[in-house]
Design a binder for these strands. Structure first.
Length: 970
RNA sequence: GCCGAAGUGGCGGAACUGGUAGACGCGCUGGAUUCAAAAUCCAGUGAUGGCAACAUCGUGCGGGUUCGAUUCCCGCCUUCGGUACCA
């Protein structure tokens, strides 16, 4: 009987569903283990072979943990709010909820066809009102909280209010953005609007006017992590800086805890480092500089207070608030010009112009805080308003950017480090001793920093400060398809909705576009106000809101009175094993840690980290097939411009390269075409370019399914798309059209997507599961290689055949031979070790080795085959269930015990020692296991081969590595 | 520039704390089976020399530690990922 993967897999998937095999509940007597995948955004394209990689790994671990006695929580859901569904809605008018629902159904079906052991009863969808009700609820908790730096925890806003009533805000240690300072009396005298504004500056979600990343194409703002190199992460549209009033999340309050918490996490170093860099803690000092003839001060941040005597000028960011008042009349024009220019530059322009030095003098001077020297104040866009104070003290001898600026504007470069060579550039090393620095002279840098810090604080002209690169996160999106923000405005004062009014459901709108006035789409909705007529916030939440806490909802997905019950969260606590891409390092993974810490502060959670251990799966890339379309370059008669015209001639890689390299000219091409298609063909069909230099070929991505190895099926290509119907080709003499192969990210537009459905149909889910693991370490990026799956498929067939004699199921009850038992226990030891250390790829090899060994030994003993089926079930669950049933079991293999290996079978009767002289292996000696060291040594030295190698020399040393090698040093 | 990861046959990759490098799979070569093909099975497969036993070389490059290094240390090169006028 052959291995019929189609019927077997269908049968067991149905069986699992009907019997609800993977339903999970709290079992207090059992230890819990929570295995979670990053839930997907259900895109219209469905899953490709890259998606399941991580899901397979986590499913193997979940199934393995079940077999080893854990109560495993292994859920799946959908991050179903997002831009693509909304863009589709704008184009087609179809409600995003509908598109999303359709996509989710497809995803769920695909996931089920892979045989994952998810408890589908726990599925969550972030766009479901019963879910986002609690996302809104958490928003309100954040809104009602402030961060107490002294207690190092979030606290309720009411406590802050009563504190203000007693002492004002001058003594409190809190994370805030409040410019005002007031005492209790003043607080009491404030009107409602002022109080609200002050409180907003303390709340963990707050409204603020800030510079944000505005993406005009998408019509919305983006968080820092959603911008890559000045372009939007989704869509790749330009992003500009814009000042806007937006909802913000005070994540900076948690900067230190987010940093320190990394220590105890079992995550990869690279992701932890990414978070550390993103948080970007740097220790230094705030220093205040007086402005000449004025009372106010310029505050700067520096990590090198020791170089204070090396300051020769000041630089402000062009947007700095003091610029307007500092500029003198004679410099007004140039400064205004410069500010204007800088404001028009996008983030991207700034990045590309990094090397250029620009700036202008304001006409004003600052005074050195210690020696009162006059320091000219410049503005330049190399100083950023968003970091530190938006102003710097320039130390050209110690900072390359300051050095460049000093050179360009002919400013002095005083040296403050003994022996530093600053003729060709700044000395940025933190070494040497101070000179020309008054009381710091002779001190090494580290000591000088401390001395200066104390001095500054003593004289009250500066103070120790810790600066973070991390910014508060923008929380509003001018979009429809997101969680509505449960806030309404009473006379401009933002008011929290009552919990009982949640969920605040998304309203119906006529169009998914902003209003004429530029308000977000929600403003189009009729009745988007409270019963009293107060307008409701029209912005929605960003994509990361729902994904920041979903792991906890899985613990109690149907709870209607709270996001999750204490009972459930106290049992499941947090995720033991999280699988997902490293690309979320500075987004989802950081926000999620932030919300978890906040919910921990409020007492809702027993743990303050969401994910204990994490595995970052690599991307499976596609192999794109590229051919070249020949272009004719010509000079347009009308405007004299050089232009190119497309042809229907397609070139193989070989020809395209030669054309590109100039090895072929127009004459060669004409000859080749005529040779192939008949004399005069090229001329007749206008395929002769007068000027071949101009863009001779365009790269075209071809569907990888039209390619076998590197060869294009030209007939299929002609039928692929109507525009290729009349294609003609030039290719190698051996009649093979060789394409150009490139490894890229899988995407629809590159026609390099490999769909798992077809592979499952052809080879089965078990084969696909095993193969994706076999491909290599899960963490690594790797191109999809279609050919290797055959090998794994062959192995499963052989495994199946192990249980069958001809068409009959045949397992014998006789004793297994000792050799087979040894092989089996060696296998068990290795497999359990490898799964525990997440080496999923080597386990597949072990399956193959054991299968081959059993086939060779013709071993069909139940004694071995039965536990073998259990061991293989995490990888190939369907075939395992089928064989388990055939072995006469009524229960599912899911609930069996993972077989333990027995060390007594692993002992070798004889040990083969490679005997080496000076590290070089000369012969092998077989001795009985357990032979004592000194006896072994004697045997080795008396061996005739040893005598030959020693040639009368005396061995200096004999090294015996137990069970491994004997090394004789001569 | 800085931070992180990685460089092993024709290819994907093994070698977990230093101990016979190349497991396992793909591909390739030869053979069996077949009218033939597919499928399956058997054998071989790092390089060089040799009929062979065997010898020499070999884990990006150059050094070092060690009886012994893919593994540890120092200096480079390359690729990938992150990040950036961060003061």
């Amino acid at each position: 009987m052959n291995y019929e993967h189609r019927s077997i897999e269908k049968k067991w998937q149905k069986n699992w569903e009907e019997k609800n095999t993977f339903r999970t509940e709290i079992l207090p007597e059992k230890k819990k283990y929570y295995v979670l995948d990053m839930f997907p955004y259900p895109s219209g394209a469905g899953l490709h072979v890259g998606h399941p990689l991580g899901y397979i790994a986590s499913d193997i671990l979940a199934r393995y943990k079940r077999l080893t006695g854990f109560n495993v929580l292994h859920p799946m859901g959908f991050d179903s709010f997002g831009l693509p569904a909304e863009q589709y809605a704008i184009q087609t008018g179809q409600h995003p909820a509908k598109t999303t629902e359709k996509n989710i159904d497809r995803y769920r079906e695909q996931l089920k066809s892979l045989g994952f052991s998810y408890d589908w009863e726990r599925e969550v969808q972030t766009s479901d009102p019963s879910y986002y009700r609690w996302t809104q609820w958490i928003f309100l908790q954040l809104f009602d909280s402030w961060y107490d730096k002294k207690a190092n925890a979030a606290r309720h806003i009411d406590e802050l209010i009563s504190f203000f009533e007693k002492e004002g805000n001058t003594t409190i240690q809190a994370s805030h953005s409040c410019q005002l300072s007031f005492d209790a009396e003043q607080w009491k005298s404030f009107d409602e609007k002022t109080r609200s504004d002050v409180l907003l500056d303390y709340r963990l979600t707050y409204l603020a006017e800030t510079v944000v990343n505005w993406c005009p194409e998408l019509g919305t703002v983006l968080a820092n992590d959603e911008v890559k190199e000045g372009l939007s992460e989704r869509g790749g549209y330009p992003v500009v800086q814009k000042k806007m009033r937006q909802w913000m999340m005070r994540i900076t309050a948690y900067a230190d805890r987010l940093l320190d918490g990394l220590e105890k996490l079992d995550w990869s170093d690279s992701v932890k480092d990414m978070q550390r860099n993103w948080i970007g803690r740097s220790e230094g000092a705030s220093v205040f500089f007086e402005i000449e003839k004025r009372k106010d001060l310029i505050e700067v941040f520096t990590t090198r207070p020791d170089t204070l005597f090396g300051v020769s000028f000041m630089v402000l960011a062009p947007e700095h608030p003091l610029v307007g008042s500092l500029v003198t009349s004679e410099h007004k024009e140039s400064v205004l010009n410069y500010v204007e220019q800088a404001s028009r530059k996008s983030e991207r322009d700034r990045i590309s112009e990094v090397k250029k030095v620009s700036g202008v003098f304001t006409g004003s001077y600052a005074l050195h805080p210690l020696n009162k020297e006059k320091l000219p104040i410049y503005i330049s866009d190399y100083v950023l308003l968003g970091y530190g104070t938006g102003a710097i003290m320039a130390v050209p001898s110690g900072d390359q950017r300051d050095w460049n600026f000093a050179r360009a504007f002919d400013l002095p470069i005083p040296n403050v480090i003994e022996g530093a060579d600053i003729s060709e550039g700044a000395d940025e090393s933190k070494g040497g001793r101070l000179i020309n620095s008054d009381f710091l002279n002779g001190m090494p840098v580290e000591k000088a920093i401390k001395a200066m810090l104390s001095h500054l604080e003593e004289k009250n002209i500066g103070l120790r400060k810790i600066q973070y690169r991390l910014r508060d996160a923008v929380f509003s999106r001018q979009r429809y398809w997101g969680e509505p923000i449960p806030i309404y405005f009473n006379d401009g004062i933002p008011m929290a909705m009552d919990e009982s009014e949640l969920p605040l459901e998304l309203p119906e709108v006529d169009k998914y576009l902003p209003t004429k006035e530029g308000d977000p789409p929600l403003a189009r909705a009729e009745g988007w106000h409270t019963p009293e007529g107060f307008p409701i916030e029209a912005n929605t939440m960003p994509g990361w809101a729902g994904s920041s806490w979903y792991l906890f909802r899985y613990m109690d997905p149907t709870n209607t009175i709270e996001p999750f019950s204490q009972k459930n969260v106290n049992y499941w606590r947090n995720v033991d094993f999280y699988v997902g891409g490293a690309e979320h390092a500075t987004g989802h993974l950081l926000y999620s840690r932030f919300w978890t810490k906040f919910l921990y502060d409020t007492g809702k959670l027993p743990e303050d980290e969401p994910f204990k251990k994490m595995l970052n799966q690599g991307m499976i890339q596609g192999k794109s097939a590229i051919i070249h379309r020949y272009n004719i370059g010509y000079i347009d008669r009308e405007d004299g411009q050089i232009k190119t015209r497309e042809t229907n001639l397609y070139l193989s890689n070989h020809f395209a390269r030669n054309l590109q390299d100039g090895k072929y000219g127009p004459k060669d091409l004409e000859r080749l075409i005529d040779e192939k298609y008949g004399k005069g063909y090229a001329r007749e069909h206008h395929l002769i370019s007068p000027n071949i230099e101009i863009a001779p070929a365009t790269r075209i991505h071809v569907d990888v399914n039209l390619v076998d190895g590197e060869e294009l099926d030209v007939i299929a290509f002609k039928q692929w798309q109507p525009r290729f119907k009349d294609a003609i080709f030039l290719f190698e003499e051996d009649e093979k059209f060789i394409i150009l192969c490139e490894v890229e990210k899988m995407s629809k537009t590159k026609f390099n997507v490999i769909n798992p459905d077809e592979l499952i149909e052809r080879y089965g889910a078990d084969s696909l599961r095993c193969y994706e693991m076999f491909l290599g370490p899960v963490e690594q990026h790797k191109p999809w290689d279609q050919k290797g799956i055959e090998g794994v498929s062959r192995f499963l067939k052989r495994f199946w055949a192990l249980f069958h004699e001809g068409t009959d199921f045949m397992v014998l009850d006789d004793k297994a031979p000792l050799e087979a038992k040894k092989a089996f226990h060696k296998f068990l030891k290795k497999v359990s070790e490898d799964i525990e250390r997440l080496s999923f790829n080597t386990v597949v090899s072990e399956f193959m080795i054991l299968t081959n060994a059993l086939v060779a030994m013709k071993c069909r003993s139940r004694e071995i085959l039965e536990p073998f089926v259990i061991a293989i079930s995490p990888y190939a669950p369907h075939i395992a269930e089928e064989l388990w049933e055939k072995l006469g079991h009524k229960s599912s293999v899911t609930f069996e015990k993972f077989p333990l290996h027995d060390d007594s079978y692993l002992k070798e009767d004889n040990v083969k020692y490679p005997i080496s002289f000076n590290g070089k292996v000369r012969f092998t000696l077989e001795v009985e296991s357990g032979t004592a060291g000194d006896l072994l040594q004697k045997m080795v030295l008396e061996h005739e081969d040893s005598q030959r190698w020693l040639e009368g020399k005396n061995p200096k040393k004999v090294i015996i590595v137990p069970n491994k090698i004997v090394n004789i040093v001569v």
